[in-house]
Simulated assay, not measured.
Amino acid sequence: MMPRTLLALSLLLLAAPAWAQQKVEITADKFTIEETKREAVFDGNVVVKHPTVTVWAPHVVAVYGEGGTNDIKSFEATGDVKLETKDQVATGERAVFTPADQLLRLTGNVVVTNSGGTVNSPELVVNLETNVSTFTSSSGGRVTGVFNSQ
């Protein structure tokens, strides 16, 4: 079991260049490697702690390609997902990170709160390479914000 655990942790460490040299701690009620699907699956009260962000979700799946830990395809957190940094909290129903394009997509009743206010949106896409965050709406929905005045 130890090599598989190391594989899953290696997947998470190598998924993004910013995480490669950082300590990442993952806890869950259950951890499964599905080698035929090339998935590392964490279930139940999943907490991913990184020095710059903590993620909570009921279910997290890391998908890797034929290259193993050098070929991460995606990470997906589903359920009531919460991402917290020192400056803000973001919640939604699904978060997907794809290392190939360095995009983090948070979808489903997205709420982002920081000291400047709150933004609600159906979807948030963060480009980690360019540091550009884009809130979008769909199906007639709207992006809304409430901002604190100083």
Rank of each mutant, 00 (worst) to 15 (best):
V146Q: 08
R105E: 07
F135R: 04
S139H: 11
S74W: 05
I72M: 11
P51I: 01
S137K: 08
D71E: 07
L9G: 10
F42M: 05
P17Q: 12
T144Y: 08
L9C: 11
T54K: 00
V48F: 01
L11V: 03
T27C: 07
N131Q: 14
A8C: 15
R94E: 05
L6N: 10
F42N: 06
G116M: 03
A16I: 01
N109A: 13
K30G: 03
T144C: 07
K82Q: 12
T54G: 01
R4H: 14
N114E: 02
V81P: 02
T130K: 13
E84N: 00
T78V: 07
S149H: 15
T134I: 13
L7Q: 07
R94T: 04
D87K: 02
N45G: 10
A20Y: 09
T69D: 14
H59T: 00
V63D: 09
L13Y: 11
A40P: 13
V143C: 04
A18G: 08
S115I: 08
V55D: 00
V41D: 07
L104Y: 09
A90F: 00
K49D: 12
G67I: 09
Q150I: 13
A90R: 00
W56V: 00
G140R: 09
V47K: 14
V132R: 09
N127M: 06
A77F: 06
E39L: 03
T91N: 10
T118L: 01
F147K: 06
G68V: 07
V132C: 09
K73M: 11
E123R: 14
V110M: 06
E25N: 12
S10H: 12
T54I: 07
F42V: 01
P122D: 11
G145R: 11
G44N: 06
V126N: 02
R94P: 08
F42K: 05
Q21I: 03
A20W: 05
G68D: 07
A40V: 05
P17A: 11
G116C: 00
S115W: 00
A100P: 01
M2E: 12
T136D: 07
S10F: 00
N120S: 10
L104I: 13
V41T: 08
K37W: 04
V112H: 01
D29S: 11
P99M: 02
P3T: 09
E93Q: 15
K30V: 09
V111Y: 02
G116V: 04
L12S: 04
G65I: 00
K73T: 12
A16K: 03
T52W: 00
Q21T: 11
N131L: 15
T54V: 12
Q21N: 12
A95L: 15
V132M: 10
V132N: 11
I26T: 14
I72P: 05
G65K: 04
N120M: 09
L13T: 14
S137F: 04
I26V: 15
A100V: 12
Q150Y: 13
P99R: 05
G116N: 11
D43C: 08
G116E: 13
T85V: 02
